[in-house]
Design a protein around this nucleic acid. Structure first.
Lengths: 198, 198, 198, 198
DNA sequence: TCCTAAGCGAGACGGTACGTCTTGTCTTCCA
DNA sequence: TGGAAGACAAGACGTACCGTCTCGCTTAGGA
């Protein structure tokens, strides 16, 4: 029987500080574009010393990816159960994503809108593209060999979606979530239908 | 009769300096991501004093915008004559853009690829979206009132195109320009066809 | 009947920690100048937590003073018995000090040499100056009133001695302890002799 | 006839800034010990941006040695002409140095007094020791070989002088410059006389 | 052909932000 | 209960850019 590895219980303050910093960054991103925000701003907003920031994160971008991971976890947690059968398996992500965006409109606008950090959009893009690739029967991980057509299709689908989403979030247009979804499906489904039948 | 307003002929050196700076930026963007390039880097590469930079451009972004304008002019100049009738008027831009990208592969990768400046992609996006909107029979300029559906369609089409283009440029995939075009058309045309017929 | 006043027996570990810290500082002073040594360095060398340092000492200088006191105690303990009668009572300290310095050459070089802490030299200076003042018949404690000439003499004598000592320690000169003493006495005794006779 | 070497005239602002910084350091050293003064303090006092400081000096110590050089130049410039013949050539420096210290009492106290920077005292010591060595007939530069006795003598003389000077500057004693000089000479001359005659 | 206005390089300058380091206080956990 | 570990705020450090500016030299263009 092996002795349990002595791992000291982490200090509760640590998570408090880290969370305060994550929250502060997001709060500031509602007000200013990401690149204009300084580490000092974040620390101040989080009521935390600037040096404390560097204890927990290497730099601003490190904090950002940490936040992205939280976003991904949040999405994964509640994105698993699409009640209705989607028009096409590759479009299963559409309805949930639009709903999440609607619920957290301000947050999503801050993150993927004009002033947002490119990294967030890119990561979201990558994440969704993987889902689509899998749904199209391809492998989840990108192969080094000649890119399967699914990869290209996934780029098309997700690129279209991200653009529409961003446009919808940035204009305070009277378009409803349902209309957005319908528009997207009407444009992309026919093309997909043809491809899948093959 | 009034005397002609005395306008001295501009110094030829001015344009030489400005062009050297534009070229230097583009050259550097082949090597480093846009944000990592400093004004000093650009000036040095252009064999120009750093203060001279500020004589001609307000800041790095100003130079970038200036470069984008040149790109747009270049595109407009040679994009006017698509020899073949496109599958759909809204997709008229596809063939020419892909051809330009192929010809200037390195340039396009530097501009709209991962390390490129977001502004370039956004401007290109805006430009193409306008073409699509017009082709769809909408107004060229975006109205403040309830967004016409054409706007949404344009976002979808252009978003899909830009994503595919970026993907194509970044991987050194063996996919040919023709294949890229075919893939895109196959995915987007069906949806458009339905919409237009209305 | 009242309970005996609770005087907790001092934890033996306390003295162990303090001594480890004192030793660590001295060890480090053999390698680096005093000001370049950080509290963290000392704690690490002493195998002690940094916070433990602050339990025992207010700061680095406090530890230093503590070490100086030990040095003074050490000197006093073995400095009391000069076997030979000195050339002049005010120079009684010379022979013992030189001998101590020779025995503990490395330590003395670290403490009063170039990289040493000024405080050590100053404290040693003060200590010796007091001995000299007393030997000259003046009061041990410095009076606020017009400084007695003995004070000035003491400064001269001790200043000369410290400079010679530091010089001797820093060069690895082939000068022997006896030669150093002789040199010093030959220079200072005549002046003192005149003064004392008064 | 050769062309004059193209040497661009130095920007007048540079010297203004550097001097302002030198002055600021000295001013602050009248108020606080050297080590407690931060670069930011100096820059602020000099009405100069902190970054400007780093344009001209590597760090605080660099500014200090620059100041020391100025002090040395100042001393050399006016120290050349001792009107009266000194009691002994090796003591020629005494009278002038005491006079300078008296004229610039506050400055000298700040520089070589308790809160002053060790470097200043050490440099002054080195400078005077060299004068004494030369006066004693030795070589100006320290030989690597067995240290000449003059070196030891010089250390004694200068060590004694520096200690007395520091003591005099720090107490606001009523001792006059003449008395200080007399005290010093009375103590050191006899010892020297013997040595020289040899 | 000379003169004059400008373009230009060099770089000083005040700022802001960065990421690192050290200090001294404080909290939390463990033995 | 006291010591080790280490979180924390504060603030200095030296570096990198920024955008503004001043200074002379050079040079193109107009007289």
């Amino acid at each position: 029987m092996t002795a349990a590895p002595r791992r000291p219980r982490p200090d509760r303050r640590v998570e408090r500080s880290k969370q305060a910093l994550r929250d502060a960054l997001i709060a500031l991103m509602h007000e200013h574009p990401y690149e204009r925000i300084s580490v000092a701003d974040i620390a101040e907003r989080a009521n935390v010393g600037r040096s404390t920031f560097y204890v927990h994160f290497a730099d601003k971008d490190d904090l950002l990816v940490d936040g992205i991971d939280q976003l991904k976890a949040w999405l994964r947690e509640r994105g698993d159960a699409p009640e209705v059968t989607p028009a096409h398996p590759a479009l299963a992500f559409v309805r949930p994503m639009i709903e999440h965006a609607e619920q957290q409109r301000a947050l999503f606008r801050a993150l993927v809108g004009r002033g947002g950090a490119v990294q967030v959009s890119e990561e979201l893009h990558r994440m969704l593209a993987e889902l689509v690739r899998v749904a199209l029967g391809g492998k989840a991980t990108v192969a080094k060999r000649r890119p399967a057509p699914e990869e290209a299709i996934a780029e098309v689908v997700v690129g279209a979606f991200m653009a529409l989403l961003r446009w919808w979030l940035e204009r305070d247009s009277a378009m409803t979530a349902a209309e957005v979804e319908a528009t997207f499906t009407r444009q992309l489904l026919p093309g997909l239908a043809g491809w899948t039948r093959r």
